[in-house]
Write a protein that binds this DNA or RNA. Structure first.
Lengths: 224, 224
DNA sequence: CGATGGGGTGTACAGCGTATTCGCCGACGC
DNA sequence: GCGTCGGCGAATACGCTGTACACCCCATCG
């Protein structure tokens, strides 16, 4: 008697997809390769996920499911939001493909909504009006998901790309050069920006500014 | 004598690709369909662009090339930065596919660098240290490119998607509900968030906070 | 005149997501 | 015990993608 036929299920498919992406990158996650990994024919996956998009939705859901929402202590809402977003950041950093995957998603799955709910709740409990809480969520932007956009490509990662675009001439960008010279002076050994610092820098800047609005009783201008 | 053979060139290819994306969406831009549009065989394009990635790089470059950088007036750096980023926003809004395209790019082409240079320059000229200017660029995040992430999908646009993910239960998200109820009360006719308002709200929040750091002579903590 | 080389052509390949059809097999009712 | 039903996996096939490779035409130039 060979293997006694353990049937597939949605969570095994998702777990393997996450493992595959973790190990070989997002591009490696194709229905065919994932099916191979599971010892199954590609079409079998469609009994458990709705399709490629639904699969990626599920993968993102799994990653965001790792986030632990902090509970506010001592009424310090900033610390709680900060800890929650840093937890999201940690989750996304454990799965490097997740950043790009999150950006491409349009539907909101339970874990994603759960995370947004947790952050919103912290704001409301801290005395934010629903109005200000709403704008605060938007202002935090991608930091809600634990990352900020890559402004300068750390090092041209990935295969070198054929280019016909004219190569930029550094002399045309004196201000960028000035900034990067200073950055290198401060961190001579670094290969790129200090993403952790940039993340918390912008986060704290926003949290402070939002706290000021909150305590001032800010509200939206009435339109029209 | 039929058409006297006007040869293709890179800018014609890029212009047609942009027009195709504008008219039929990013998914319509395939090498084959673009070649059809140009009355040419697919492989002919490879004499003018390095490949699909290089093509999209060029398309993004074209969009960001539409941005006009403001010159500071009356020493009001905030107004200048604001106007420049709103110009980027206008360009991206003219080409709805550009938002997603920008997020996927990893290389920095001349127009992209030119835009970053312009913003950086405004900061340096306003008295930002290179250090603070650097962090400011990161803090502004995607707003540099004229957009902020879509937090709530306005309306499930696009074809309905097969889903196996369990449907979320609204009762599990009371804080999100509270926020959206208030948002609807304020703008009863709206179908989604007021992205323009959210953009400028976060932008002004950041510009104000950054100005405070600037005039306080802020600098990075020394690490280690 | 012949050589050169850039630009367009034709063919081909490997990979993708997925619609459709079929067959196995275990569970259940009679 | 036996028929049937339903869920899960297997096979096959379609249309699409990006692009490597070889070829050929034709304008240009020495």
């Amino acid at each position: 008697m060979p293997t006694p036929r353990v049937p597939l299920n949605r969570s095994r498919v998702l777990a393997d997809a996450v493992a595959l992406a973790d190990g070989e990158g997002a591009d490696a996650v194709s229905m065919r390769r994932l099916a191979d990994r599971l010892g199954v024919v590609p079409m079998a996956l469609y009994k458990h996920v709705g399709g490629k998009d639904d699969l990626v939705d599920g993968m993102v859901d799994a990653v965001l499911g790792e986030v632990v929402a902090a509970r506010p202590a001592d009424g310090d809402w900033r610390a709680a939001v900060r800890a929650t977003l840093l937890s999201a950041r940690a989750a996304v950093q454990r799965h490097p493909w997740a950043r790009r995957a999150i950006e491409t998603r349009t539907v909101r799955t339970p874990a994603v909504l759960g995370h947004m709910e947790a952050v919103t709740r912290l704001l409301l409990d801290a005395g934010f009006t629903p109005d200000l809480a709403h704008h605060a969520m938007h202002a935090l932007g991608n930091r809600i998901w634990g990352f900020s956009p890559e402004l300068f490509d750390e090092d041209a990662r990935g295969a070198p790309r054929a280019r016909t675009t004219p190569q930029p001439n550094p002399a045309d960008y004196p201000s960028i050069i000035a900034v990067s010279v200073e950055a290198r002076r401060r961190r001579p050994d670094a290969t790129g920006c200090d993403e952790d610092f940039e993340f918390t820098f912008a986060l704290d800047l926003l949290l402070d500014a939002l706290d000021r609005l909150r305590s001032d009783g800010w509200e939206s201008p009435v339109s029209g």
